[in-house]
Protein backbone atom coordinates (compact mmCIF):
# COMPACT_ATOMS: atom_id res chain seq x y z
CA UNK A 1 0.00 0.00 0.00
CA UNK A 2 1.66 3.26 -1.04
CA UNK A 3 1.75 5.64 1.89
CA UNK A 4 1.09 9.04 0.45
CA UNK A 5 1.86 12.32 2.11
CA UNK A 6 -0.95 13.40 4.35
CA UNK A 7 -2.51 16.64 3.23
CA UNK A 8 -2.39 19.54 5.63
CA UNK A 9 -6.17 19.88 5.86
CA UNK A 10 -6.55 16.25 6.85
CA UNK A 11 -3.80 16.63 9.45
CA UNK A 12 -5.50 19.69 10.93
CA UNK A 13 -8.83 17.91 11.12
CA UNK A 14 -7.23 14.89 12.75
CA UNK A 15 -5.43 17.04 15.29
CA UNK A 16 -8.68 18.76 16.20
CA UNK A 17 -10.51 15.49 16.61
CA UNK A 18 -7.65 13.96 18.55
CA UNK A 19 -7.45 16.87 20.98
CA UNK A 20 -11.23 16.66 21.52
CA UNK A 21 -11.28 12.90 21.95
CA UNK A 22 -7.83 11.98 23.31
CA UNK A 23 -6.92 8.33 23.04
CA UNK A 24 -10.05 7.41 21.11
CA UNK A 25 -8.98 8.10 17.54
CA UNK A 26 -6.50 6.18 15.49
CA UNK A 27 -5.44 7.60 12.17
CA UNK A 28 -5.05 5.04 9.45
CA UNK A 29 -2.54 5.35 6.65
CA UNK A 30 -3.83 7.48 3.83
CA UNK A 31 -4.83 5.41 0.83
CA UNK A 32 -5.61 6.93 -2.59
CA UNK A 33 -5.83 10.37 -1.02
CA UNK A 34 -8.59 9.47 1.44
CA UNK A 35 -8.46 10.20 5.14
CA UNK A 36 -9.63 7.33 7.33
CA UNK A 37 -10.03 7.50 11.06
CA UNK A 38 -10.84 4.67 13.38
CA UNK A 39 -12.90 5.33 16.46
CA UNK A 40 -11.76 2.90 19.13
CA UNK A 41 -14.93 3.06 21.22
CA UNK A 42 -18.14 2.68 19.24
CA UNK A 43 -20.17 4.07 22.16
CA UNK A 44 -18.69 7.52 21.49
CA UNK A 45 -20.07 7.69 17.93
CA UNK A 46 -22.77 10.17 18.89
CA UNK A 47 -20.34 12.63 20.48
CA UNK A 48 -17.98 12.54 17.56
CA UNK A 49 -20.80 12.85 15.01
CA UNK A 50 -22.07 16.01 16.70
CA UNK A 51 -18.50 17.34 16.88
CA UNK A 52 -17.88 16.62 13.20
CA UNK A 53 -21.14 18.21 12.13
CA UNK A 54 -21.16 21.31 14.34
CA UNK A 55 -17.50 22.13 14.87
CA UNK A 56 -15.72 20.84 11.78
CA UNK A 57 -18.41 21.41 9.16
CA UNK A 58 -18.89 17.79 8.06
CA UNK A 59 -22.58 18.39 7.52
CA UNK A 60 -23.28 15.82 4.81
CA UNK A 61 -23.28 12.13 5.68
CA UNK A 62 -22.82 10.38 2.35
CA UNK A 63 -23.19 6.79 3.38
CA UNK A 64 -22.88 4.21 6.12
CA UNK A 65 -21.48 0.80 5.21
CA UNK A 66 -20.84 -2.28 7.24
CA UNK A 67 -18.13 -4.91 6.82
CA UNK A 68 -18.11 -8.39 8.27
CA UNK A 69 -14.50 -9.25 9.16
CA UNK A 70 -15.08 -12.91 9.78
CA UNK A 71 -12.60 -14.59 12.15
CA UNK A 72 -11.43 -11.23 13.45
CA UNK A 73 -12.32 -9.71 16.75
CA UNK A 74 -14.24 -7.38 16.95
CA UNK A 75 -16.05 -8.84 13.98
CA UNK A 76 -18.17 -6.06 12.50
CA UNK A 77 -17.00 -2.73 11.19
CA UNK A 78 -19.32 0.20 10.56
CA UNK A 79 -17.98 2.77 8.14
CA UNK A 80 -19.28 6.34 8.04
CA UNK A 81 -18.49 8.45 4.98
CA UNK A 82 -18.63 12.10 6.09
CA UNK A 83 -18.42 15.01 3.72
CA UNK A 84 -18.14 18.74 4.13
CA UNK A 85 -20.11 20.67 1.54
CA UNK A 86 -18.26 23.89 2.31
CA UNK A 87 -14.70 22.51 2.33
CA UNK A 88 -15.42 19.77 -0.26
CA UNK A 89 -13.63 17.31 1.96
CA UNK A 90 -14.29 13.65 2.54
CA UNK A 91 -13.58 11.89 5.82
CA UNK A 92 -14.07 8.25 6.64
CA UNK A 93 -14.79 7.23 10.20
CA UNK A 94 -15.05 3.61 11.14
CA UNK A 95 -15.65 1.73 14.33
CA UNK A 96 -15.98 -1.90 15.31
CA UNK A 97 -18.50 -3.86 17.31
CA UNK A 98 -18.12 -7.41 18.54
CA UNK A 99 -20.12 -10.43 17.45
CA UNK A 100 -21.35 -11.11 21.01
CA UNK A 101 -22.81 -7.66 21.41
CA UNK A 102 -23.37 -6.17 17.95
CA UNK A 103 -24.83 -2.91 19.14
CA UNK A 104 -23.96 0.76 19.03
CA UNK A 105 -25.85 4.05 19.50
CA UNK A 106 -27.86 5.44 16.62
CA UNK A 107 -27.02 8.74 14.93
CA UNK A 108 -30.37 8.94 13.14
CA UNK A 109 -31.37 12.02 15.15
CA UNK A 110 -28.08 13.78 14.35
CA UNK A 111 -28.09 12.92 10.64
CA UNK A 112 -31.65 12.03 9.51
CA UNK A 113 -30.21 10.31 6.45
CA UNK A 114 -28.68 7.71 8.76
CA UNK A 115 -32.16 6.38 9.54
CA UNK A 116 -32.47 4.18 6.46
CA UNK A 117 -28.78 3.31 6.30
CA UNK A 118 -28.91 1.99 9.86
CA UNK A 119 -32.05 0.02 9.07
CA UNK A 120 -30.28 -1.50 6.10
CA UNK A 121 -27.25 -2.45 8.18
CA UNK A 122 -29.52 -4.03 10.77
CA UNK A 123 -31.31 -5.88 8.00
CA UNK A 124 -28.20 -7.13 6.23
CA UNK A 125 -25.68 -7.60 9.05
CA UNK A 126 -27.75 -7.82 12.19
CA UNK A 127 -26.08 -4.92 13.93
CA UNK A 128 -28.47 -3.14 16.28
CA UNK A 129 -28.59 0.61 16.65
CA UNK A 130 -29.67 1.60 20.14
CA UNK A 131 -32.52 4.14 20.38
CA UNK A 132 -33.13 4.06 16.65
CA UNK A 133 -36.64 5.47 16.07
CA UNK A 134 -37.79 2.65 13.80
CA UNK A 135 -35.38 -0.27 13.64
CA UNK A 136 -37.14 -2.67 11.27
CA UNK A 137 -35.95 -4.61 8.27
CA UNK A 138 -35.99 -2.52 5.13
CA UNK A 139 -34.97 -4.63 2.12
CA UNK A 140 -35.87 -8.13 3.34
CA UNK A 141 -39.33 -8.89 4.59
CA UNK A 142 -40.34 -8.43 8.18
CA UNK A 143 -39.74 -11.62 10.13
CA UNK A 144 -36.93 -12.96 7.93
CA UNK A 145 -34.66 -14.84 10.32
CA UNK A 146 -31.20 -14.42 8.73
CA UNK A 147 -28.71 -11.66 8.02
CA UNK A 148 -27.74 -12.17 4.37
CA UNK A 149 -24.59 -10.07 4.10
CA UNK A 150 -22.80 -11.89 6.90
CA UNK A 151 -19.97 -13.95 5.52
CA UNK A 152 -21.35 -17.17 7.01
CA UNK A 153 -24.59 -16.78 5.03
CA UNK A 154 -24.26 -18.85 1.83
CA UNK A 155 -24.55 -17.22 -1.58
CA UNK A 156 -27.46 -19.41 -2.68
CA UNK A 157 -29.49 -18.48 0.38
CA UNK A 158 -31.09 -20.58 3.09
CA UNK A 159 -34.54 -22.14 2.87
CA UNK A 160 -36.95 -20.32 5.14
CA UNK A 161 -40.51 -21.36 5.81
CA UNK A 162 -42.50 -19.14 8.10
CA UNK A 163 -45.75 -20.22 9.71
CA UNK A 164 -47.54 -17.24 8.12
CA UNK A 165 -46.85 -18.53 4.63
CA UNK A 166 -43.73 -16.54 3.75
CA UNK A 167 -41.01 -18.69 2.29
CA UNK A 168 -37.72 -18.64 0.42
CA UNK A 169 -35.80 -21.54 -1.06
CA UNK A 170 -32.12 -21.88 -1.71
CA UNK A 171 -31.25 -20.94 -5.27
CA UNK A 172 -30.25 -23.78 -7.64
CA UNK A 173 -26.52 -23.36 -8.16
CA UNK A 174 -25.84 -26.28 -10.55
CA UNK A 175 -22.54 -27.11 -8.89
CA UNK A 176 -21.54 -23.46 -8.55
CA UNK A 177 -20.78 -20.84 -7.54
CA UNK A 178 -17.80 -20.99 -9.85
CA UNK A 179 -16.02 -18.12 -8.26
CA UNK A 180 -12.46 -17.22 -7.61
CA UNK A 181 -11.24 -16.45 -4.13
CA UNK A 182 -8.40 -14.48 -2.68
CA UNK A 183 -5.42 -16.73 -2.16
CA UNK A 184 -1.70 -16.88 -2.85
CA UNK A 185 -2.03 -20.43 -4.14
CA UNK A 186 -3.18 -20.96 -7.70
CA UNK A 187 -5.31 -24.02 -6.94
CA UNK A 188 -7.24 -22.01 -4.34
CA UNK A 189 -7.53 -18.84 -6.39
CA UNK A 190 -8.84 -20.61 -9.48
CA UNK A 191 -12.56 -20.51 -10.07
CA UNK A 192 -13.90 -23.91 -9.07
CA UNK A 193 -17.06 -25.40 -7.86
CA UNK A 194 -16.95 -24.98 -4.09
CA UNK A 195 -19.25 -26.72 -1.71
CA UNK A 196 -21.24 -24.13 0.21
CA UNK A 197 -20.25 -23.70 3.79
Amino acid sequence: MPTQTITSHATQVCQKIQSEFPGLIEMRPQFRGETSLRLLDAEKIRDISVFLRDKLGYDYLIDISSVDHENEEPRFEIVYEHYSLSAHDHLRLSCRVSEDNPELPTIADIFPTANWHEREIYDMMGIKFRNHPDLRRILMWEGYPHFPLRKDFPLEGLPVHMPDGHFTDAAPMEGGPFVTSTSDFAHEAEPRSRTPR
Partner: peptide, 16 residues
Protein backbone atom coordinates in the same frame (compact mmCIF):
# COMPACT_ATOMS: atom_id res chain seq x y z
CA UNK B 1 -21.04 5.72 -4.80
CA UNK B 2 -19.12 2.51 -4.35
CA UNK B 3 -17.36 1.66 -1.12
CA UNK B 4 -14.89 -1.15 -1.77
CA UNK B 5 -13.07 -2.94 1.01
CA UNK B 6 -10.34 -5.06 -0.54
CA UNK B 7 -8.22 -7.63 1.24
CA UNK B 8 -6.15 -8.16 -1.89
CA UNK B 9 -6.78 -10.50 -4.80
CA UNK B 10 -9.35 -10.48 -7.54
CA UNK B 11 -12.54 -10.30 -5.47
CA UNK B 12 -13.87 -7.39 -3.42
CA UNK B 13 -14.16 -8.35 0.23
CA UNK B 14 -17.07 -5.97 0.57
CA UNK B 15 -18.71 -3.78 -2.02
CA UNK B 16 -21.30 -1.34 -0.78
Amino acid sequence: GFYICSKGGGVPYRLK
